[in-house]
Write a protein that binds this DNA or RNA. Sequence first.
DNA 1: GCCATGAACTTGACGCATCAATCTTATGGG
DNA 2: CCCATAAGATTGATGCGTCAAGTTCATGGC
Lengths: 187, 187
Amino acid sequence: METHAVRTQAEARDLVPTSEPRWLNEREHEVWLALRHLLWGLQPAVDRQLLHDSGLSGPEYSVLATLTENPDGVLRSGTAARMLGWGRSRLSHLLRRMEGKGLISRACSPEDGRGQDIALTPAGREAIIEAAPGHVGFVRSIVFDALTPEQQDSLLVACQRISAAIEASGAIECDADGGPCDAEPTA
Amino acid sequence: METHAVRTQAEARDLVPTSEPRWLNEREHEVWLALRHLLWGLQPAVDRQLLHDSGLSGPEYSVLATLTENPDGVLRSGTAARMLGWGRSRLSHLLRRMEGKGLISRACSPEDGRGQDIALTPAGREAIIEAAPGHVGFVRSIVFDALTPEQQDSLLVACQRISAAIEASGAIECDADGGPCDAEPTA
DNA sequence: GCCATGAACTTGACGCATCAATCTTATGGG
DNA sequence: CCCATAAGATTGATGCGTCAAGTTCATGGC
């Protein structure tokens, strides 16, 4: 990060016979700083509100919300991972901790012996139902109360374009497995 | 996260006698999803590019860039933390690892016995000079090549407004110490 | 000169994410 | 039927970030 100040740019330009002459101008630098400032600030702020007001971490909330989208609150682990856009490993670690807290339960899938069915427990359902209003209220106050509808539309477009650029840029993540990198599932 | 699907909202609205009736409408939900998608995608993408192409992690790059902004490459630890908008603890942990790699060095400050002067080593300077062009090139390709100048301006405004809302929202972070939460130092 | 207060920094414990194995179960070709 | 391959999931190691103590040093009142 830190697209570094002019000094660094000057030094690099002087010392390295690089083929990358396209440094950021002042306006671009300002945009990048603002974007990074938001990046560094928004996620922690949302997580903190959640943890403080409901005892759920951000990732935990995400998992519970995903489960709740299903009528019966049951999902195969891999399916949930795809819906969240996460790697299996990440989800597995998190599920272990959540199972320990009683928020979800896991059982071998009857259909495919390899899979795990993860299910919302009553405690898990109660936790997210209690957390949701505060979470949504916070997001509204932070994002939507701060922007006019036109600004919100512009923001949407910008996010979509940058995200598209990232994905086009060969950022083929998706854990270590070669999954199709679904992404954009919750829409 | 996961401002959860309509089902969750409906359930919460039914079951909880809440005073938070302001759920997100469909358009707002879409904006929030796009924003979160960006949040989850941009930071890791930048970090990955950096780590892959130069062996520096995102935070390491930030620290080196901050040091490089100073002529002599020396900074007090607390000053650097303020410039980065980070907590002392976070920086301390990172510096320990970076010292182990030879990227920076630490010495007791002669002025204030409590402080540590952190200094860029030759290896550290070389590392960031080598990393900078690729980093900037990547940021440009992801953010600026994807947006028109007008869209960039809109994005800037949106970022500033949301960040301001976060800070206004009593997000008084700044580690455990009561620092003035400088923020916006690198401009 | 002495001590309370507080600032600067570090440390340890813990949750979280990634990466590289591993283990188990399907599945398809011989 | 048997084995190679692949998919689903877990595990362990490591880096990172946060929170809560803790340590060291400076400073101001007495």
